Amino acid sequence: MIRAMIVDDDALVRLGLTDLLNNDPDIEVVAQATDGLHAIEQAAAHHIDVALIDVRMPRMDGITAIPRLRALPNPPKIIVLTTFDLDAYVYDALAAGADGFLLKDTDPAEILRAVHLVAAGSAMLHPTAARRLIDRYHHTNRPRATRAQTRITSLTPREKDVLALLAEGATNADIAQRLGMRESTVKAHVSRILTALDVTNRVQAALLARDAGLTP
């Protein structure tokens, strides 16, 4: 059972997401929070597997809350919810350690899929918005690109292939199919990539890959 938390200052959004997630037999919403501070309190009091967090909220916004949630003894996976007019904040959230993001008009089935994917250790980048958001707000400069390229040199050619697909938002199953590998082998490659690049999750690895010019 995936234990979820909804963090949003809009009561109707919390209600709607709670109803949606609780209709999935493998997901249970065990906590709700109205802002970042409340989310930290709830995550400390409950075991949370996946937290769906809004960006703009009173007292403490979602971006500020992410590293604090990550610092908990049993940190939850984090999916940021946003709208297109908050694109810049989404990049900041991903860089802070979010495992993915959803737009608030995402199809309900995709929201459920995202929770399952993130709970299993994958990332969920909205298929059409991911490139738009990161490319628009992740302005690569030469020093940053140089640092990223240096870190990527430690990867094998096969690991670079895996990283390039990961940066496109591909799941382990997608990568396995496209590269003719077993999914267990892809998981092993991803684990090695995260360690070699000194990043905490797939999203940060994807950002670094873009910095280095590994993907267009």
Rank of each mutant, 00 (worst) to 15 (best):
residue 88 A to L: 01
residue 93 A to K: 05
residue 211 D to K: 00
residue 2 I to E: 06
residue 9 D to H: 07
residue 128 T to I: 10
residue 95 A to D: 14
residue 144 R to E: 14
residue 156 T to D: 09
residue 56 R to M: 13
residue 183 E to R: 14
residue 131 R to E: 13
residue 12 L to R: 15
residue 5 M to C: 10
residue 120 A to T: 02
residue 34 T to N: 08
residue 60 M to L: 15
residue 27 I to R: 03
residue 80 V to S: 05
residue 15 L to I: 09
residue 117 L to W: 11
residue 29 V to M: 02
residue 124 M to I: 04
residue 184 S to R: 11
residue 77 K to V: 11
residue 68 R to M: 12
residue 194 L to V: 08
residue 139 H to L: 14
residue 17 L to R: 13
residue 25 P to K: 10
residue 42 Q to N: 03
residue 86 L to K: 10
residue 79 I to R: 06
residue 84 F to P: 09
residue 151 R to V: 10
residue 98 A to K: 02
residue 187 K to V: 14
residue 215 T to A: 02
residue 192 R to L: 11
residue 39 A to T: 11
residue 78 I to C: 10
residue 61 D to A: 03
residue 169 G to T: 07
residue 29 V to P: 01
residue 159 E to T: 09
residue 45 A to P: 00
residue 157 P to Y: 08
residue 29 V to G: 03
residue 160 K to A: 14
residue 72 L to K: 01
residue 59 R to C: 00
residue 110 E to I: 01
residue 172 N to I: 03
residue 103 L to P: 07
residue 65 A to W: 05
residue 182 R to M: 11
residue 36 G to K: 10
residue 59 R to L: 05
residue 199 V to W: 03
residue 33 A to H: 09
residue 11 A to F: 12
residue 152 I to W: 08
residue 200 T to S: 14
residue 57 M to V: 05
residue 205 A to W: 06
residue 71 A to Y: 06
residue 161 D to T: 09
residue 89 Y to Q: 11
residue 135 D to L: 06
residue 87 D to A: 13
residue 144 R to V: 12
residue 37 L to K: 14
residue 78 I to S: 10
residue 8 D to C: 08
residue 86 L to M: 09
residue 147 R to H: 12
residue 156 T to L: 12
residue 143 P to R: 08
residue 198 D to S: 13
residue 208 L to F: 00
residue 149 Q to Y: 04
residue 161 D to Q: 15
residue 198 D to R: 12
residue 24 D to R: 04
residue 145 A to F: 02
residue 121 G to R: 04
residue 195 T to V: 12
residue 148 A to G: 06
residue 2 I to P: 09
residue 170 A to E: 15
residue 47 H to F: 01
residue 88 A to F: 00
residue 9 D to W: 07
residue 87 D to R: 12
residue 72 L to W: 00
residue 14 R to N: 10
residue 116 H to R: 14
residue 48 I to S: 04
residue 46 H to P: 01
residue 99 D to L: 03
